[in-house]
Amino acid sequence: MNKNINQKIAFSVFKLLSFAVVAILFVILGFIVVRGIGVVNWEFLTAMPEDGMTKGGIMPAIVGTACLVLGSMIFAFPIGVLSGIYINEYLPENGLKKFLRMMTNNLAGVPSIVFGLFGMALFVNYLKFGDSILAGSLTLGLLALPVVIRLTEEALKSVDDNLRLASYAMGTTKLQTIRRVVLPVAFPNILTGLILSVGRVSGETAPILFTVATYFLPRLPQSIFDQVMALPYHLYVLATSGTQIEASKPMAYGTAFVLVAIVLFINVLASLLRRFLQKKVKMN
């Protein structure tokens, strides 16, 4: 009897705490949505900031973030996927594999501000790219790299080994097997991984602080050596700087809303895609 009461209490506590976690998310989201949604309209999304950034829109920040995400993915996606394929398909369980995995984990654990510092030292100063989209994208790309590698590896691991064996039995080479059999099956999960890393990259502030972000630049970038405004940094600026902190608050809420909406959209898209593609694979 006592046993059951204990269990009931313990399980209720667990349940309660879990719901608290869910509640936290809803409080944060609710706060951003309630305060931000009224600010967001077509003009907000497509206009330049005006009047000391208390009016107008955030278009350059949206475009800037899009450029950075695109740039970082052009860098991180091929390298990440190729390296995932190499680690999972080519390397036997040996020291090198362990070492590469450890390095990937190490890179994943590096704080984002250290990426920023490193990006500034290597890309901005040493390679003389200056504060630019190029420098920012490469920094963000390095940050996304371990995420892409890991998710690629996981995607490849989940491919049934029998498929590989069957393919070999038909006399194909390893490369052909990977290209024709393994990758098509793993593709949905790799794609989800890519989308998730886009979500991660689009919200990062610390790595772009010293590599690309600018306070105010009401025009669109024309080359990869331009600086840009970016959504996360813009939110930081609106929340802490600006002469009229009260007047720029609505803009801050709006920016937070757009940023969160983008990130959530990406996450939801990824999980929907995963479900959809998994179903398709199962049906086949």
Binding site: V22, L25, I28, E204, T205, Y236, A256, V263
Partner: peptide, 15 residues
């Protein structure tokens, strides 16, 4: 939902 928590940018948490 837990995974969404990971997706929210840190600057939004700060705000």
């Amino acid at each position: 939902i837990v995974e969404l928590l990971a997706g929210i940018p840190s600057v939004v948490y700060g705000f």
